[in-house]
């Protein structure tokens, strides 16, 4: 099997499990929406504060969902000794990485789509120029899914992984939060020219971490 066939096999497996377990739909999406509500409680909804900070709130919520998604993605491999089976399977580390990262990216994109509706409805945000917003979101999501999968496997066999992953992952994805938030702000303000450089940064981050993940996932899976 080629790299991409193997990756598709793994991604298909993860997405099918997710579709069955319905954790995203029944837990992670409601979690995201309640976070939006809580933001509105914490910040005064009447004075236009919410519109101004909506991009930041959106991406902070995505980061929180990323932590849950990473934890889910590797909890699945922890049951019934599935991680050992995966190591014995004969699949290449790079393709397992690509598969798991793409599945996570797809899950995050679904989450983000629903959360966008939430932001538009609850915070009264108008998305003026869509192209940089959509491209930026996709790049950011790929970058987040790649780094998340990388740190997920790094912490997979560790007892304290639930606390270790945030400590390791969040500083690394700080540039994604910056880039994604700025590109959203510019898109909402209707100044796509300001957004594109940030989109480019997000693209570079995504390519870089997909590359690192493909190299490092295999060795890390062995040590998990």
């Amino acid at each position: 099997m080629s790299l991409f066939q193997e990756a598709a096999l793994v991604a298909g497996k993860d997405l099918r499990i997710e579709a069955r377990a319905k954790v995203i739909g029944q837990q992670i999406v409601p979690f995201g929406l309640i976070v939006l509500l809580l933001f509105a409680f914490a910040l005064d909804p009447d004075r236009g504060v919410l519109q101004r900070v909506a991009p930041g709130l959106f991406w902070i919520t995505v980061l929180l969902a990323l932590l849950l998604g990473v934890s889910r993605s590797f909890a699945v491999e922890a049951e019934n000794g599935a991680r050992d089976a995966l190591r014995m399977s004969g699949l290449d580390g790079s393709s397992i990485f690509l598969g798991k990262a793409s599945a996570l990216a797809v899950e995050l994109l679904v989450f983000e789509a629903l959360l966008t509706v939430g932001v538009v409805v609850l915070f009264d945000v108008r998305l003026a120029s869509l192209p940089p917003l959509v491209v930026g979101t996709v790049f950011a999501t790929v970058g987040l899914a790649a780094t998340g999968t990388l740190y997920g496997v790094l912490a997979a066999g560790i007892r304290a992984r639930e606390t270790l992953v945030p400590v390791l992952l969040l500083p690394v994805v700080a540039p994604v939060l910056l880039g994604a938030t700025r590109s959203w702000e510019s898109s909402i303000d209707g100044v796509p020219g300001d957004a594109w450089p940030w989109v480019a940064l997000l693209g570079i981050f995504a390519v870089l971490f997909v590359g690192i993940g493909m190299l490092a996932f295999g060795p890390l899976l062995e040590e998990s």
Partner: peptide, 17 residues
């Protein structure tokens, strides 16, 4: 591996900030 990832991330952080 973690140290190298962090090291590679530093210029990106610096640049974006």
């Amino acid at each position: 591996i973690a140290a190298l990832i962090a090291f590679i991330d530093v210029p990106i952080v610096h640049f974006s900030v």
